[in-house]
Amino acid sequence: MSIWTIASYAAWAISALLLGWMLFDLIRVGAVYGEDFLMSAREGEDELLQEAEEEEGGRK
């Protein structure tokens, strides 16, 4: 087996690992957190939130 064949198997394995992890994490997050919380990002609102926090001299 040439080094290229080994590398190619390794590439498949790493790809599978990464994709598997993402899929696992995606399902886990969906199970642990409520949908409403995950969908709570609102357009344009983050800016206001941050400004409010900064005015409080609050956390980063």
Binding site: S8, Y9, I14, S15, M22
Partner: peptide, 24 residues
């Protein structure tokens, strides 16, 4: 480097997988 039967598919997938992982 003299290899003729090289199949790049694994590396195409790997590229996308690594980058997507980083983005994630």
């Amino acid at each position: 480097s003299g290899v003729t039967d090289f199949n790049a598919q694994a590396f195409v997938v790997l590229t996308i997988a690594i980058l997507a992982f980083m983005n994630y």
